[in-house]
């Protein structure tokens, strides 16, 4: 047995709570990225600035998740502690572009 298997045998992981935590992060990422797109459209951002806006917003939400959702201890709730920062960071990108372009067009009278 390699190291990882041994760790799993000594300190087993609850797959049920892992799935529940991952789902919570996924939901927050998808909903917030849609609203980030609305914001980027209202601000009339173009090209790279829109994507920068997305990543700034994602970083902000990651910060909130780290301190409020995971109470500063992501290792206790995820198998990889970086999941709070990088997990599902790109899943919202498509819905972001959708609402971004839609609001950009709507706001332009």
């Amino acid at each position: 047995m390699d190291r990882k298997e041994l760790e799993g045998a000594v300190a087993p992981i609850s797959s049920e709570s892992l799935a529940q935590n991952t789902k919570a992060v996924y939901y927050i990422r998808s909903v917030t990225s849609t609203i980030f797109g609305v914001g980027a459209g209202i601000l009339g951002l173009e090209s790279y600035f829109g994507f920068l806006f997305y990543f700034a917003g994602t970083a902000y939400v990651s910060l909130l998740m780290f301190f409020i959702l995971a109470k500063g201890k992501p290792a206790e709730f995820f198998t990889s502690p970086s999941y709070v920062w990088t997990g599902n960071a790109f899943t919202g990108l498509t819905s972001f572009v959708l609402t971004w372009t839609m609001l950009y067009g709507l706001v332009d009278a």
Binding site: A11, I13, S14, E16, S17, V31, T32, I35
Partner: peptide, 17 residues
């Protein structure tokens, strides 16, 4: 909005069995 969504999320369960 981001803050509201993060507060609304269900409390996380500890991953250690």
């Amino acid at each position: 909005f981001g803050l509201g969504q993060v507060i609304a999320a269900p409390t996380l369960q500890p991953v250690s069995f």
